[in-house]
């Protein structure tokens, strides 16, 4: 034991503070420098260090999709990746898609189509749907169902989710024609 006056202090290296370092992430258009350990997932960095709790932790194992965010416009599961591996990438979360007084078309469509009950999966559903729109490949109901299959909804609001996504996909398609 050390003779330190602080009772919680020992010489044991196991209690050394975790080795963190500054990591600059570009989140929703702004650079944020966070002090992170190598094992901090992108999800935990967003929620616990950047204060962006819109992204939800559901299963934390890449099985439910509630942690979906966009990295350089592509949807990924933020729970299965390390924050440090995304230095320099453009990260978009639900907070970056719309604001309370200026809803994103997908947010409005989810309200209009009653596309949630508890709302826990909704940020992931909406980020995933934006990724689907960016990909530009899913148009029919079957295609949208298949390409939204990485997002589970325990309340079973799938009918409303499908209708909401379809409405925005259709509107985008019409605009392009």
């Amino acid at each position: 034991m050390s003779n330190s006056a602080t009772p919680n202090t020992t010489d044991s290296p196991a209690l050394a503070p975790p080795a963190t370092s500054p990591v600059t992430l570009r989140i929703n258009g702004s650079d944020m420098t966070l002090q992170l350990a190598p094992w901090t997932t992108l999800l935990d960095a967003l929620r616990e260090y950047a204060g962006l709790t819109g992204t939800k932790k559901g299963c934390d194992h890449g099985q439910c999709g509630s942690c979906t965010v966009l990295v350089d416009g592509k949807r990924i599961n933020s729970c299965l990746t390390l924050a440090m591996l995304h230095e320099g990438a453009e990260i978009t979360t639900i907070e970056g898609l719309g604001q309370e007084d200026n809803l994103h078309p997908l947010q409005q469509a989810f309200l209009d189509h009653d596309a949630f009950q508890c709302g826990y999966c909704t940020p992931g559903q909406i980020c995933s749907a934006q990724g689907l729109i960016n990909e530009g490949r899913a148009h029919t109901e079957d295609e949208i169902r298949e390409m939204m299959s990485g997002n589970l909804c325990r309340c079973g609001a799938y009918v409303g989710i499908l209708n909401a996504v379809k409405e925005v996909v259709d509107a985008q398609t019409a605009r392009r024609q």
């Binding site: 990746t81 995933s128 990724g131 990909e135 990485g150 997002n151």
Partner: peptide, 9 residues
């Protein structure tokens, strides 16, 4: 296989 998110990673 997997989901669109996982296939992107």
């Amino acid at each position: 296989g997997a989901s669109p998110q996982l296939r992107n990673m």
